[in-house]
Design a protein around this nucleic acid. Sequence first.
DNA 1: CGATTATGTGAACACGTGTGCACATCGGGG
DNA 2: CCCCGATGTGCACACGTGTTCACATAATCG
Lengths: 331, 331
Amino acid sequence: MDSDAKRRVTAADVAKRAGVSRSAVSRAFTEGAYLAPAKRALIEAAAQELGYRPNAMAAGLQGRRSNLIAIFVGEMANEYDKEVAAKLISGLNEAGKWPIVIGGSGDAARDAVNNVLRYPLEAMILRSGSLSTDISEACGKLGIPVIASGRVLDAAGVDNVCCRNQEAMAKGTELLIQRGRTRFGYISGPAGFGASAERKSGVIETLDMSGLALHADATGAFTVQSGYDAVMSLPNCAALDALICANDAMAIGALGALRERGRTVPEDISVIGFDDISMAKWPSIQLTTLRNPINGLVSSILDLLDRRQSDPAKASEMIWLDAEVILRATH
Amino acid sequence: MDSDAKRRVTAADVAKRAGVSRSAVSRAFTEGAYLAPAKRALIEAAAQELGYRPNAMAAGLQGRRSNLIAIFVGEMANEYDKEVAAKLISGLNEAGKWPIVIGGSGDAARDAVNNVLRYPLEAMILRSGSLSTDISEACGKLGIPVIASGRVLDAAGVDNVCCRNQEAMAKGTELLIQRGRTRFGYISGPAGFGASAERKSGVIETLDMSGLALHADATGAFTVQSGYDAVMSLPNCAALDALICANDAMAIGALGALRERGRTVPEDISVIGFDDISMAKWPSIQLTTLRNPINGLVSSILDLLDRRQSDPAKASEMIWLDAEVILRATH
DNA sequence: CGATTATGTGAACACGTGTGCACATCGGGG
DNA sequence: CCCCGATGTGCACACGTGTTCACATAATCG
């Protein structure tokens, strides 16, 4: 009324309005609490009228679940990362968890994480390799469970979800071998990522088992442009009849470059990617690829979260996801 | 020690460890507070050792800024939406604000918003038209400022950032007219969105001023597939020499369809889009488009937030952003 | 009707922090 | 030596909620 800054409506205000005690208001908003139905209706009407909502901060202080989850997503430059982030956010929302999202890298990201850790988080979900050990260490001290995906994080109290990169690439390579391809090229991901090594070795080992070897080998940065550049600078491009890319973005770039260099896909040369990002099924692309299962990833993360919350002291868990071969028009 | 669930380290713990009062610990962590340097160092060492961080919930209860901002992003199906969300999150992080992200639509999203509103938010950023009036009403009752973008929201206490859609499309249309194009087609966005109408009228009015009119007119869903479908089902596709699309995704779909129908871009027919999503500059696409300025959008939102916080009672503000013509290879 | 139980409710405490206020200590000037 | 200002610091309160505990009232049974 007289105060200048509009103060937030509090349970005491509702109590006064409804002519009951403040405790009754609190009970009206807690699930299991006992309260005379008539009084509950009265309180709800008053609350509705005043636009009251229990203050989650005060409730959290009281020992209630905070329902806050931090997600560290890194740069989100990658298309796949953005899709995962979007699905993860929706999934958490549906589970009644509210994600605080932290992006970026370097010192700024480190500061951001340190500040967000001041909130009583129920978990920290890591979607980026950078800073992951630092973050998980800090979370460990605070008793905040960590769920890592993408990059495997081997530490106490850290649960992991990871795609079987090597097996997936083996399946993809097998597909092209059965199709009669023999002269393979490979565009790898940047060296820092664990997934890069696993995917590449999946290709090489499978080729080896059939007595084949890589005829060309380039390294990209997981971006479309880098896939394009890699193919444009390939010396023996014309000699290849199969090109496997460490992710879809580079495969899409490669498709454009192959067209420019006069190769026709798939008659002339087969191309497959990895991830199955949404662009892979665009009409003008129709990329054959290995699906890095986003829905499975999200539901696994939610499962791990659930299990961790029901038993905070349980041993670290590791969930492996299988990739599925998605046949489209480039194999 | 003896308690089973690892209790969070509290200021009292640090105080005991450092042999000081709890107040001193609190002061050690507040910017302007006075404390003997020697004692501060002592406290910081103890805090470091125990992994202590002030509990943001208790601090927020005390009247400290919560630094929490909600972002309602809707479905995030659109590529542009995902890019905006990513940049917005980074921008907020750099400003020391922690975004709670809410996605989805319908009743689930409504519930999610209602639950997140229990936290003492500093602002609600709306990136989706759906539910926007409901949400802004609820925020108004709670005294939470609302910043809307994309869809203009005309209500008290709501600040807006919006692109000059009509003027932008006029620029794009003008470009193609000057290039000698005369037989225009247009692929519109879905009817529900305000931007759809504005963009279309920008095209039509500009054509009209030159004595031209639309020769073909289809409606898509802002997706790549819908742009592709729209062009494939165009009866008089061969008669057109210019195609303007309400966004980049549909333009990219249209490019693929035009190629299938034997038209060559840009010799035969010009194509422009709207937004300048990251795929627009992919080597195999190189779409000429109108840049819906994401960086400007994000910095405007941050500015509005800043101004609103320094003067909560200020009048609603509306910031208009100009689109820039990005010349690539399809005009 | 008296006694016992079921039912509903209000007062009081706890959560962890920031901060106003009073107090202690110390140095220096008269 | 005494007094006063300056500088640090501890005590206590407030924030808004959930929940325990004791109590009041109504209902049921002997």
